[in-house]
C-alpha cells in the first residue's frame, strides 16, 4: 500500500526560463540545464581588454577550434556547482579516513628511510604537475565561451589543487609536520635530472595561448599519461618496494581519474566531430605534444617501473584518443 499526500498544485505560466525553453522546449528543466546553459554574456561588450587588444571579452576567436554553438559541448556528469561539491565531499571523506588511519598507525613513519626517500623522489613531486594543471585550467575557465565548457575547467582546477594538497600531506606525514620532507621533495623537482623534462613540459604548457590546445594538452594528454603512470604503474612498483600502504593515500587520484575521462573525452570528441578543421587542429596538437609527454616520463620510468610500463600507459591513452575520434602517433621508441 502506498500513502499519497495530496498537495495543492498551481498552474504555472511557463515551465522554465526562455533561454532554456528555446533549447529544450517549454517543459520542466533539470538543475544542470538551468544552471549551465546560456548564462554567459555573449554580445555587446563595452570595452576591449587592456591586456589583449586583438580580442573582445568572451571572444570565440580565442581558440582555433570553432563551434556554431559552444553549448553543444556538455558535461556527461551533469556537474553544476552543487552536484560537483557534493560528489567531491564524499570522495574526500574516503580520503580522510585513509589519511587518518595511516597517520594513527604510523604506516609511513614506519617505512625504512630508503623507501621514504623513494616516495619523496618519485611520487610527491607530482604535486607540482598538479599546480601547473591548476593554473592551466583556471586560465581555460576564464576563456572558454559557453558555461557548459567553462565550468568543468574550474572544477578541474580545484581538483588538481586538492590532489596537490593530498600529495603534500604524504610528505608531511613522513616528516611529522615539519615541512622538511616537502623541501627535500621539491629539491628533486627543481634539480634532479629525472624531473627536468616534466618540469619543462609543465612550464611550456603555461605559455600555450590557445585554450583548446591547452585543454587537449593538459586534461587529455598529460593527465591521462601521468595518472596511468603515477597511480597505476608506479603504485605497483611501490608495492614491490614494500610501500603498498601508499596506495591507500592515492585512492582519491585513481577514483578521480575515472571521472574527467568522461567529460574530457566528450569535450574533445564533440569539437572534433563538428568540422574537419577542428579535427585537424586537435590532431595537430596531439601530434605535437604526445611524443614530448612520453619522452618526459621516460627518465622517471627508467629509474622505477621500467620503460615497459610506459607502453601500457600509452595503450590506455591510445584508447582514449580513439574514443575521441583522434589518432595516436604510436609509442615513441
Amino acid at each position: 500500500m502506498t500513502i499519497e499526500i495530496k498537495t495543492d498544485s498551481v498552474q504555472p505560466i511557463r515551465h522554465t526560463y526562455s533561454h532554456i525553453a528555446r533549447r529544450f522546449g517549454d517543459k520542466p528543466a533539470t538543475r544542470y540545464q538551468e544552471a549551465s546553459f546560456d548564462i554567459a554574456a555573449t554580445t555587446n561588450f563595452h570595452y576591449r581588454p587592456l591586456w589583449d587588444a586583438e580580442h573582445e571579452l568572451n571572444d570565440v576567436n580565442l581558440s582555433a577550434v570553432k563551434m556554431k554553438d559552444w553549448y553543444e559541448i556538455t558535461d556527461p556528469r551533469q556537474f553544476y556547482y552543487g552536484a560537483y561539491v557534493g560528489n567531491r565531499a564524499k570522495m574526500q571523506e574516503g580520503a580522510e579516513t585513509s589519511y587518518g588511519f595511516c597517520e594513527k598507525r604510523g604506516l609511513l613513519k614506519r617505512l625504512d628511510e630508503r623507501v621514504q626517500t623513494s616516495i619523496l623522489k618519485y611520487l610527491v613531486p607530482f604535486r607540482h604537475m598538479n599546480q601547473a594543471a591548476n593554473m592551466n585550467n583556471s586560465s581555460i575557465a576564464s576563456e572558454a565561451v559557453g558555461a557548459t565548457a567553462a565550468q568543468p575547467h574550474i572544477f578541474q582546477a580545484m581538483d588538481h589543487l586538492g590532489m596537490g594538497q593530498y600529495l603534500s600531506r604524504i610528505a608531511l606525514m613522513i616528516d611529522g609536520n615539519t615541512g622538511s620532507a616537502l623541501d627535500i621533495s621539491k629539491n628533486y623537482w627543481m634539480n634532479d635530472p629525472i624531473w627536468q623534462p616534466l618540469r619543462k613540459l609543465a612550464e611550456d604548457s603555461m605559455v600555450v595561448r590557445d585554450w583548446f590546445e591547452l585543454t587537449v594538452l593538459q586534461n587529455l594528454l598529460i593527465d591521462k599519461a601521468i595518472f596511468a603512470f603515477a597511480y597505476e604503474a608506479l603504485d605497483d612498483w611501490f608495492a614491490q618496494q614494500g610501500a603498498e600502504d601508499i596506495s591507500m593515500l592515492t585512492e582519491f587520484m585513481r577514483d578521480w581519474n575515472k571521472d574527467p575521462l568522461r567529460w574530457v573525452t566528450a569535450v574533445v570528441k564533440t569539437a572534433a566531430a563538428e568540422s574537419d578543421s577542428n579535427r585537424e587542429a586537435i590532431q595537430s596538437w596531439v601530434d605535437k605534444w604526445e611524443p614530448e609527454i612520453f619522452a618526459a616520463l621516460k627518465p622517471l620510468a627508467m629509474q622505477t617501473t621500467g620503460i615497459e610500463a610506459l607502453e601500457n600507459v600509452h595503450a590506455q591513452l591510445a584508447k582514449t584518443l580513439q574514443k575521441a575520434g583522434l589518432q595516436t602517433k604510436g609509442f615513441p621508441a
Partner: peptide, 8 residues
C-alpha cells in the same frame, strides 16, 4: 606548504 609551496 599546502598552497604556495606547490609553486616554483
Amino acid at each position: 606548504y599546502l598552497t604556495r609551496d606547490l609553486d616554483w
